[in-house]
Structure formats: structure tokens, C-alpha cells
Design a protein around this nucleic acid. Sequence first.
DNA 1: AACAAAAGAATGAACGTTCATTTATTGATT
DNA 2: AATCAATAAATGAACGTTCATTCTTTTGTT
Lengths: 213, 213
Amino acid sequence: MEECYRTPYLLSTKKQTEFYNMIKKKKIKDKKSALLKATLTLVNNNGFHNAPMSKIAKLAGVAPATIYLYFENKQDLINTLYLEVKSSFSVCAFEGYEADLPVKQGFELIWYNAASYKLNQIEESTFLSQCDNTPMIDEEIRKEGLEPLRPLLDLWERGKKEGIIKPLSDFILYAYTIYPLSFLLAMQERNLYKVSKEELSETFQMTWSAIKS
Amino acid sequence: MEECYRTPYLLSTKKQTEFYNMIKKKKIKDKKSALLKATLTLVNNNGFHNAPMSKIAKLAGVAPATIYLYFENKQDLINTLYLEVKSSFSVCAFEGYEADLPVKQGFELIWYNAASYKLNQIEESTFLSQCDNTPMIDEEIRKEGLEPLRPLLDLWERGKKEGIIKPLSDFILYAYTIYPLSFLLAMQERNLYKVSKEELSETFQMTWSAIKS
DNA sequence: AACAAAAGAATGAACGTTCATTTATTGATT
DNA sequence: AATCAATAAATGAACGTTCATTCTTTTGTT
């Protein structure tokens, strides 16, 4: 523990300062992400309306007032969390994806990535589902959260041009591609159902049948 | 106004009593449904966490205390609303449906009914979407709300036996049948997208491609 | 010593709910 | 048909609590 933060006495003064700055930034980041994590947990378990700042602070191990050093207010905290999680989803979804992959192959990669995220990163996914359908997130922020999905839209665009994918609105494609996964996650989360590996591949077939030309 | 509630002096005393009881029940129902409607509107526009009893009362035109004559507490109010709306959805979904219809025909009927509800009864559908992903509704009540969907599950059962529908879990079938509609509703609600009539039929084709054997 | 980070107590507003009354309706009695 | 006690429905103010946020003090670092 202490070991980690020991003074690096072999370094120059300037280097030392840099080192301390790094630690400081890290500590700040730690606290910030502890707060975000606490918010995630509490909102998931109790809903937005029952995740008071006092509890968030307690779970993160800080005083209530400390939250306001890192976030403007509760809305800002929620917005930040939303954008962060949304972006982490995109990062996972496009892992290993290259824009020059054949349409079906690229789509399959993205879909399985997304499915794996939705069904395994349960806390994050549950939170996103909750955000998707409440006025809890500002519309502006919601739009911002959609940005990182661009590569998928581009892929669809290409698929439509090549006659591989139905020439329909991205919204409809999304409704049959990613959205069903949210439902399966919700059922899994409520212990009503668990998707097996074989079913997952069946499920991909369903998605593909739905959107292919 | 007064006309409506005029004494039906041509009726016997017993009949008169019955008449008055009817009016009383109607008035009570009026107030109750005014409260439910107000809750629906406020939860939709502001979210559960911003729909206080005081506002609900004001919008329904009653005093805050009056709510507690009709509902145990806020949770009960929400639960009641949820069950009522959920049931109204089912009523619409199965309008004109007979259990002896051929599988595809019956499914098509139900799907279009459901789509029409989701895309037209916007307030109700938006509310349901919001409920689907929050801890706002007790799990027990949520289960109760699923009951009226039985005929659809039976239809799927039959479809699987006849080899018409993929032998998959009802959850997966639901995820590709009804759930995508919720997404399209949400997009429509946010003025991001409007499903045209032609697209609706395309969309049905997608659903059918996904679940047919 | 100077400074920023963090804490904890404090604050006013807002919440869900209750309570003491008032108002409206009913049924019996004249 | 009129009166009146009894009951039910409805109210607005008030309660205790909890909330998001701020203020003042303490702690820790340079």
C-alpha cells in the first residue's frame, strides 16, 4: 500500500514533482471513478429516485460535500456516468473491428461484441437500459452518447449499397440488432432467463435474417 | 350538467337507489382514473423521481390527501397504473384474435395490433417502456402484468409444435417480436423518427423472418 | 506558513403522508 | 316535502423526514 506511493528519492526535483502530480491525478481519478461506480450500483439497485447523494458518498467512502468537488451537481454526475458507460460499450462493441472487413463479417463481429457486453457487463448494461427510457438523462447528452456508434451506421450504409442489408432506416435496423439484446439482459438480470451459448448463435441468426436483404 | 344527475323520479325507490349507486361508483371511478391519468402524464414528462404527489393531485384537480382515499400510497398508485396500462395493451393486442386462427395469421394479427398500440397510444406505451427497466415497479407486480399475454405464448407453443416457429424460449421470441416496437416508439416519441405504413409492413417481415422456422 | 482537499454539520426546500375539519350525501323521522 | 342526525368524501394545513447543496472547520501536503 504505502510502498506504492513512496517518494522516488532517486529522481530530480522536477521529476519528483511530475511524479507527485501523476499520483495526485491518479488519486483524483480514483475518487471520481469510485463515485461513478457507487452511483452505478445505487441507481441500478434502487432506481434514480432512490439513490441520494448521501448514500452515493457513503458507498464511495467520501463525505457528501466531496462529490461537489468532482461534479457540478447530481445531474452532472448522472450525465457523466451515462456518457462514460455508453462509451465503454462502444469501445467493446468495436474491439477488433476494421472498417474494411466484409459487411457480414464485420457485422457479426460487432454484434457478438455487443452481445457479450450486454450479457456480461451486467451492471453497466442495466444502467444503460434504465437510462434509455427515462427523462433522467438530458436529451442533449443522450445524443452525445450516440456518437461513438458511428462505425456501425457506416457499416450499414455500406451494406445497403452492396445490397446485402435491407435499405431501411438505421433506427429500424438498430431495433432488430442491438435492442433485443437489452431485453434478454433484463430477463437475465431478473433471473427469469439465461441465454446459452447455442442460443446466442441462434439469436444472431435471427438478427441477420431480419436485416439481410 | 345538472341534467345528467337529475332524479329519475319515474323509477321505484329500489331502482332509484340502484341508480344513485351507479352514479356514485361512476364518480369514484372518475376521480380514480383522473388520478391515474395525471400520474401517467407526470411520470412520462418528468420521470418517476419528479412526479410528486402534490403535482399529481393538482393535475387531477383534487387535494393531495384525496389520493390516499383511493390508493394506499405512491407505490400502490404506480403499481395500479402499471397493471391497468399493461392490461389495456393486452386487450388491444388480442382484439379480434381467436385461438383457432392459423399460426401465422394469428401472429400477424396480434403483431399489428401491438404495433398499432405502441405507435399510437403513445402516452401509455411510453409509460410502459419506462417501467420496463426501472426498480420503480415491484417484481411481483411486474409478473402479474405479464399474465394477460398468455394467448401469445400459447400461439407460439402451437407454432413450435407445427414446426412453423423456431423452437426457442418465449423470451427470445418476445425480444424479436414486441420489443423492437418499443424502441421505435421511443424514437418516435423523441421526434427522431417516424415509422411509415410501408415500413411497418417491412418491419413485420423482419419480425417474421426472425422467428419463423 | 500557505494552500487545497476533504470532512461534517448545517440549511432550506421538497417530499410523502397524516390529521383535524369542513363539506356533501344518505336514510330515517316527521 | 322538510328536517336532521349519521356517515362518507374531500380538504388544506401540518408533520416528520429526507433530499441536494452549501458553509465552516479540519486535515494533509508542499
